[in-house]
Design a protein around this nucleic acid. Sequence first.
RNA 1: GGGCGGUUAGCUCAGCGGUAGAGCACUACGUUGACAUCGUAGUGGCCACUGGUUCGAUCCCAGUACCGCCCACCA
Length: 1060
Amino acid sequence: MPMEKTFDAKAAEPRLTALWQAAGAFRAGANAKPGAGPFSIMIPPPNVTGALHMGHAFNNTLQDVLTRWHRMRGDDVLWQPGTDHAGIATQMVVERELAKEGKVGRREMGREKFIARVWEQKKKSRGNIRAQLERLGASCDWSREAFTMSGAPGAPAGEEGNFHDAVIKVFVEMYHKGLIYRGKRLVNWDPQFETAISDLEVEQTEVDGFMWHFKYPLAGGASYEYVEKDADGNVVLRETRDWISIATTRPETMLGDGAVAVHPSDERYAPIVGKLCEIPVGPKAHRRLIPIIVDEYPDPLFGSGAVKITGAHDFNDYAVASRAGIPLYRLMDTRANMRTDGPRYAESVAVAMSVARKECTLSEAEIESVNLVPDELRGLHRFRRPEDTEPQARERVVAQITAEGLAVMTRADDPRLGKTRPGPDPGPRAEPGAAAGEEVPGQARDGVDLVPLVEARKIMQPFGDRSKVVIEPMLTDQWFVDTARIVQPALEAVRSGRTKIIPPSGEKTYYHWLENIEPWCISRQLWWGHQIPVWYGPGVDEQGRFTRDFSFRFCAVNDEEALEEATREYRRLANFNPDEIQVFADESVARQKLLDLREAEWKDIRAQQRDEFEELDWTVLPIYRDPDVLDTWFSSGLWPIGTLGWPEPTPELARYFPTSVLVTGQDILFFWVARMMMMQLAVVDDIPFRTVYLHGLVRDAKGKKMSKSLGNVIDPLEVIDEYGADALRFANAAMASLGGVLRLDTQRIAGYRNFGTKLWNACRFAEMNGVWEGHATRSEPPKASATANRWIIGEAARMRAEVDEALAAFRFDQAAAALYGFVWGKVCDWYVEFAKPLFDGPQAGETRAVMAWVLDQSLILLHPIMPFVTEALWQTTRADPGLLCHAPWPTYGEDLVDREAEREMRWVTGLIDAIRSARAEVHVPVGLKLGLVAVDWDAAAKAAWGRNEALIRRLARVEALTEGAAPKGSVAIPVEGATFAIPLAGVIDIAAEAARLQKALEKVEKDLSGIRGRLANPQFLASAKEEVVDEARARAETLEAEAAQIGAALARLRAMGGPG
RNA sequence: GGGCGGUUAGCUCAGCGGUAGAGCACUACGUUGACAUCGUAGUGGCCACUGGUUCGAUCCCAGUACCGCCCACCA
């Protein structure tokens, strides 16, 4: 059956995928030679409900190239696939689905049902990622597909696996080593998902914002002399003030201020340091007073130099407040609405005031219960969102202060005011300027009118990377990994070179981050994830009485063990009957249970005798599990060992860990790579991978980030539909130069599709000429006598070396370039053309054998990058093919390079090029066959001609050769060791030929003058390396000869008496 | 503000001490025993700028400008 003109990727790809799968071709260890060393890659797990995007396509192409390459080389290969449960992202997807289906929300559903629903969703989308990766040709071992939540409680059948065990085990161990701790800290709070997130999940974005300036009156009407000086110390302003000026971008947080801070060196405020000032919000009768303190943090040159300190809602303020012992007053709830809980405002203020006056100190819990939000602001959102029709807390606060005359005023024409007034918060995606409320109405220009100073300015605002809402710093109890204590080995592993990061700039970034690492907040207030294995029970006070604060903690691997441990502990403390301790899933139920106990039962249990104790109607002592789940990155941080079965001592773990290479985007260097390094080293005391290959973000052809809103997203599956997976893969490989920006251009993909067609047609040509008949694949080339055959064998050997070298150095672009250049530039452009005349000659047999070998090598060496078209060709061109993906990778060296043949082919192709070029320049019709005259040639040229005459005549389209002087009206063809002439009397324009030769001569002379100049410089001769000098001499000789030949031709032309 | 990159043909990028390269695009010609998803020939570059090192710099060093990315951030 004759081959089609093009490769039908659409039909072939599924067929080949099935062929590979049926053969188990990608199983761990498939095609491994006896005694082979391991090569393992862990896939960066995509989100389980996700879809493959271009970044994945790129990333997985590179992994697959490496995997296929090593597998063909006979290494013991594992490419471990799997997916990530992706806490926030997946929970978001499912909640959205629920909303779309009009079903009850997550909270109404309850935790257990909701998690079951997420597992359903997982089942639904299961196979998506796999199918998409298979379309790309990814040769993962799907029989080992892993999932970061496998084996978790509630996991349905088919999700057995022990990844969950691994995660819990690590938590428990780290807990007991003190590497994980719980604490009340200021964390980044996402009010959309109502969870804490880590620093890395916060995006700082510049948005249009406003800065308000307010007066905080001094307590009791006190006043001071405010003196402002310029840089030279001259007094520029002196006035008596009974207030201090404060600037803020977040007026609503004023309610929680604990102090006003100034720099210790700031003379302006020295007179009032230590005094109290008034927060100008809330009912006048209950104004709160706060101290004016000194701290290094305020910048005297910025704003008024005085900063309000809101320890519970700002990271810098938190640090100041901690240093100064200023209480931290939380103002908002989990949705960033102003708190509605706790005592009324008046009562809360009274408590806060007595703290400020140092009349009493409060415990953390007591501070927590204080709600300083004025009653009329309670329940409002922190600021007005687009969907809010009414002013929220921020606007109300501003209005109150302004109405009271405590806004700092300025001339209406103050340029700082900007054109707009504060409106609803625009969110991060809004266009610049969209923060606009209404335009400021025209003002009198005489300078008399004064308006509140509200500066319009760009401010950096933190947004949740998934929710895109403004992050609120919140004071909450969270779990942290004490990263400072596990970071050193991770740093050391890279410093020492045990793990290598490429490109090297990645190492610098890695060091920089790890050397300045912050504690890692690992608890998330979500439901989908690994629930933290910690249980809380009632505490026991010094008198041995139970307390209601659930301050006892037990860390264990599951409910049963937690119960056992709790029993042990309570028995020790209170001689307690284990049957009476129960685990509750829900904190509030547990607390209620505890409240239900009669007051008597609380009293001094330890003192009770056992029998007395039993008389009490004591039903149960509740303990409950921490409702939070772990940060997704905590579990994916264990991906390398977790997928290999750890903590079980599996053979795969022994075989494939540490893994060979991690291929991933540099955007998750911190999120994932650094954490895997730290965790693997902390848990199993070994590096997770020997090499980390980092690549950039895939962008569109113009270098823009692909995004739905820009509409420039290129779907890899659509690309595969249109051009085939091989084209996309080749484009990906070709883009992958180290450290470059990745711009994906569909034009380029089309070009590589054409490359596949080119290869296809070269094979089709071979097939039509019976090249494959009786051919057996072998790594050593057949013996050849024809120069072209000897030459192409050497070219193949060079290419093979280049490909191996490039892949070993992760230079996928260079490997791709070498293959492209060989297949198209050497095989198709020259060798196939040479073969045509050779097939008619005495060397037809050897030529067929060599062509078969050369195409075999092309298929083998291209296979890692273009698996489909190469496998398809492999299958169609031989009777008993086996699988190309298991074909042995060649190892022959450059000893196959035949220098003699190479030199001769250079001469032959040079002559052909020169003739073609000359013909084109003097406009000889392509179809016209011309005579050729050897005007002058040496023995080598004669011999080369003799051996390759048929090839030259065919490709240069010339007739038989004659010897003799250049005929009148001929074109001169100077080549090494010979000058040829093409008789064109009457056909050519002598002037045009003269111009052509003149141009050629000028170029040669320009080159020559450079080299002569260098050779004439004694310092060059003295300092340059010997071979450089020799090379220059040789080059000069060649150029001189060429110049002479052209000169002679020109002279002949002139002698002919032409117009030139 | 700190860190890391980049600036080479119209475009996208290689190269990185001694002849400036590729692909695409462009121009002209072309149904030549596989391929028009093609062939042949060609046009196109003070290798960002300024200094320095060197016999010699696109390449090494310093500075400048512009462009990216990451981290931190002034209330």
